Simulated assay, not measured.
Amino acid sequence: MSRPARRGLAVASSSAALLLALAACGSGVSDDAEGAAEQVGPGYVTEGKLTVGTAQPAYFPWAIDDDPTTGEGFEPAVAYAVAEQLGFDSDDVEWVRTTFDEAIAPGPKTFDINLQQFSITPERENAVDFSSPYYESAQVVVTTGSSSVADAASLADLEDALIGAQTGTTSFIAAEQTIAPAQGVQAFSSNDDAKLALENGQVDAIVVDLPTAFYISGAELDDGVIVGQLPEAEGQHGDAFGIVLPKGSALTGDVTDAVDALREDGTLDALAEEWLGGDAAPQLQ
């Protein structure tokens, strides 16, 4: 950053300090020792560009073929829609990869915004900013095509089934309170264990959150079936996913306004239906 030229002895030291402060405020980017860019004032990581972070790899159906630059998949589509709301052309969107943990850790960031299914929590809000939610997940019943409940159309159809879920999770509570299976909910230490039990015929179906349901049924089970979404259990709510920004980012308000506009005009619902298969997860009553 260039320093303002001196104007001889007539320039007081206080005026020079003020000029330096103003020059610093006008800077959009500074680099830390690791090369990460920290947003300052209204600036972006790269002037004239919107730098979007996502996972490595980014999984179906959130991104298709691990290539967010195509705009295919729910989160790339949301990112490009937000970019348009902010006044960027698609050619002005640049992508970077981060791990989940480093994206929500305190400190400088290599991105302006980051999307990789970050649930908004008070703990995370201590380290980063969030936009308003662009998606709220539900609890979903997953099974296989050969299961006796593959064609279940209501909660009553599941009452006599063996239902599994990861213990200590919202999924387990939803299964207990909403399905209330006659034999109780079968507890597993992880979703992977519950999925293995489903594959081995130890349970008839499992309950997981919607993103996990899409991945398990579409990528991990040979004959996966999404039976349907559960109504919210009393006192329970789906996980709200927000766009992550650096803590104190000057862009947080604008990004939230963009997300709100996309929600209000129906764009977010349309993108969720297109990429997350809204018709594939009917509401169970």
Rank of each mutant, 00 (worst) to 15 (best):
R3L: 15
R6M: 09
R7F: 12
R7Q: 13
G8I: 07
G8P: 05
L9D: 07
L9F: 08
A10F: 09
S15N: 09
A21S: 09
A23I: 09
A24W: 07
V29R: 14
D31H: 14
D31Q: 15
A33S: 13
E34H: 13
A37H: 12
E38I: 15
Q39I: 15
P42Y: 01
V45W: 01
V45H: 07
G48W: 06
V52F: 05
G53M: 13
G53A: 15
T54I: 08
P57T: 04
A58Q: 09
W62S: 14
W62N: 13
I64G: 02
T69A: 14
E75D: 11
V78G: 04
V78W: 00
A81Q: 01
V82H: 00
Q85L: 01
Q85P: 02
L86Y: 00
F88M: 08
S90H: 00
D92R: 04
E94S: 11
W95E: 01
W95G: 02
V96K: 02
T99E: 00
D101H: 00
E102A: 10
A105F: 00
P108R: 02
K109N: 07
K109C: 10
T110R: 03
T110L: 00
F111E: 01
D112R: 03
N114K: 03
I120M: 11
P122D: 06
R124P: 10
A127L: 11
V128T: 10
D129V: 10
D129E: 08
F130V: 14
P133Y: 07
Y134G: 05
Y135Q: 09
E136I: 15
V142Q: 01
A150L: 00
A152G: 05
L155A: 11
L158G: 02
A161M: 08
L162R: 13
I163N: 03
G164S: 03
Q166A: 15
G168A: 03
T169Y: 06
T170N: 12
F172Y: 13
F188H: 05
F188A: 01
D193C: 01
L196H: 04
A197K: 02
A205I: 06
I206G: 05
P211R: 04
P211Y: 04
T212Q: 10
F214W: 09
S217L: 07
L221M: 05
L221Q: 00
D222A: 12
D223H: 02
V225K: 02
A233C: 09
H237P: 06
A240T: 13
K247I: 10
A250C: 06
D254H: 06
T256A: 04
T256M: 03
T256R: 08
D257N: 14
L262V: 08
D265F: 12
L268N: 08
L271T: 10
A272S: 15
E274F: 12
W275F: 15
W275D: 07
L276S: 07
G277Y: 12
A280M: 13
A281C: 12
L284E: 01
Q285M: 14
